[in-house]
Design a protein around this nucleic acid. Structure first.
Ligand SMILES: [Zn+2]
Ligand SMILES: [Zn+2]
Ligand SMILES: [Zn+2]
Ligand SMILES: [Zn+2]
Lengths: 148, 148
DNA sequence: GCGCAAATGTTATGTTATATCATGGAGGAC
DNA sequence: GTCCTCCATGATATAACATAACATTTGCGC
């Protein structure tokens, strides 16, 4: 295991301890897998790796662990790929922007937390050549927000 | 059919004529469905509506039409919802940003073509209260881009 | 120990998307 | 007009992604 992976796992462990979350073996293992591979993995790829590591391998095993990791900010879902990546900035409340290379499959996670950051600024900062950008915000439309 | 729908269909027709694309009955019907409903629809919902309109309803029927519409800019896929919307700015080369209301399911398409536009600027312009933003760029990483 | 809540085990199924091969139909070359 | 090619469509099957539902186990406060 790389040093960075070990460090991230330790941070997750610490965060869970502080927030009464259970960092169970399967959750830890899934996070390790994501961090070690350092690229987007589908739930069923993760499932295969879990089986190899001696865990159960029904779909809910992977999806539950992924739900936990995503919900608590240790991993993210890449919507375009129906797949998941380990978080590169764990512990902090953040708003990620992903740069996904179509050639080498590498995924880099950039910070978009500054509300004035644009996709093109983020990309140029990362040296990434954007061919297609997916920008989707979920929330409340003007009309629904004004009713609440 | 609303006037705006008819106008969009006409524009698509014109664009196809000019670009040697075949605006076949099933493609036209799927675009009409998307524009009329004015919200994100899953492929299988579209399939049901196609069947009601007397078209065949195997999955490839919908997916092929949607591929055509998306590829040529008449519709967009909403990745977070695995669903599709008709384009609000057809004909122009554009880079959309979607605001998806979790309360009323309305999807608005904003222009993000100005590279200095940020998600938060787009949202505030649209009166939209963002709760979660998905930002995913596909393209070439620094290393792969420099090799090409 | 007992009872509760959360996590995991297990089976089944739902949902989204594509592969593959057959058939049909418009338009150009001759 | 006939043949040929290309592309769209028809049709069947299956792959890939995700969740529902209920049983069982585990950890923890009492
Ligand atoms: Zn992150
Ligand atoms: Zn690359
Ligand atoms: Zn559009
Ligand atoms: Zn709304």
């Amino acid at each position: 295991m790389g040093i960075a992976v070990g460090k991230s796992i330790k941070e997750a462990e610490k965060f869970c301890k502080e927030n009464d979350l259970k960092f169970t073996p399967v959750r830890r293992k899934v996070l390790e897998i994501l961090l070690q591979k350092n690229k987007a993995l589908g739930a069923y790829e993760i499932l295969d790796l879990l089986r190899e590591a001696g865990f159960k391998n029904q779909p809910p095993v992977a999806y539950r662990a992924l739900d936990f990791l995503v919900k608590n900010g240790f991993a993210h879902k890449i919507e375009q790929l129906n797949s998941f990546v380990g978080c590169m900035h764990p512990g902090k409340d953040h708003s990620p922007a992903f740069m996904i290379c179509r050639n080498c499959d590498f995924v880099s996670e950039e910070e978009a937390i500054n509300p004035n950051f644009s996709v093109s600024k983020i990309a140029s900062k990362a040296g990434f050549k954007v061919e297609k950008a997916v920008i989707e915000a979920r929330g409340l439309c003007h009309s629904c927000a004004s009713m609440a």
